[in-house]
Amino acid sequence: MTPPHDLLLLDNADVQALLTHDDTLRCVRHAFEAHSNRSGRTFPLVRESLGGQTVFGIKSGDIAADQALGLKVAGFWPANRALGKDAHQATILLMDPATGRPLGLFDGNHVTSMRTGAAGGIGIQQLARPDSRRLCLFGSGVQARIQLDYALRVCPSLTQVDYVTAQGQPSPVLEELFSPRCSITHAPDADTAVARADIVVTATPSRQPLFSRAAVRPGTHINAVGADTKGKRELPEGLLEQALLVVDDIAQARQLGESQWAPDCALQEIGTLLPDTGWQRPAEAITVFDMTGIALQDLTVAQSLYTLAGAHGRGRRLAWP
């Protein structure tokens, strides 16, 4: 382990070299369990507009039993695209809870993508029918790709993917990435694709419903990824009231997630379904996992990266007096 008087720096290349899909799944599962059994805490969220579509946010928390404390500063800067840079920006600070000293400063972009993909994978493992064969994907960007990646990893029965794009045009990049792993087809009509699907994944920045309520069949599972800010919405009116609605954090989902549009719906946290409770999915239920992303996901992954970097000699260490 890096001594407390050193500050470990991990750039994007270091994070990508160290972080595996399996490690991320393990970390995110632990984060959800710690959050729901209250051995971990999430502190008040900061998410503020800086004008236009630019958003600045801070997510922080701790898990005392793991001696884990830290925060992620992240947001959305759309003007970055014109500069050839990623519009999503994130940086993670891992701290020593005993002294308050910084232990590590990590690029958070890849962590955010991976931990969100892993959360979607856990949602599918716990809430989708195990014999699911067809998935409908909304979006073709970075988060849509990582969601599909994890879905195919955790649900081997998936063989067919229909994807819907905002422009209504096929994505050759998406098809090239995933055609070796599944049969993937562009779907020009959203409702038709949803009606055929066992699993629906929405990973867009939309502020209006992407499909109609009537298109969703009994037994369908939906991972709602895109709504993470007030005003965002991907699911149609009336769906949540008829679904078994699961979230990562109840208060945050009501504030920022799809659940902001259904304030009277009963919510259940995904962490309560992970231990061996004997819970089983009702076969004909429509299930929705409303994903807003919690600080403990970033924190557990950051701790794992800190340990892995020490074991593999990755990153730079700076004296931090």
Rank of each mutant, 00 (worst) to 15 (best):
K59F: 01
L18I: 01
L69A: 11
R41M: 12
A79E: 14
A82R: 10
G84M: 05
P44D: 06
R26C: 13
S36I: 02
N37K: 07
D62Q: 14
S36P: 05
R38V: 09
D22H: 08
F43L: 13
Q53V: 11
A64W: 07
N37M: 07
V55C: 11
L69V: 03
T42Q: 14
L25W: 02
A79Q: 14
P44N: 09
D14G: 05
K72T: 06
P78V: 09
D6Y: 02
E33T: 15
A65G: 15
D14I: 05
A74S: 11
D86T: 13
Q16I: 03
L71P: 01
V28H: 06
T24F: 01
P44G: 10
D23F: 02
K59R: 08
S49M: 10
L10A: 00
L45G: 04
K72G: 04
Q16P: 06
D66Y: 12
K72I: 08
L83A: 15
L71I: 02
F43E: 12
R29S: 13
V55E: 13
G57Y: 03
P44R: 07
H30Q: 14
P44Y: 02
S36L: 02
A79C: 05
G51N: 10
G52Q: 06
I63P: 05
S39D: 15
A65T: 15
R47A: 09
H35G: 09
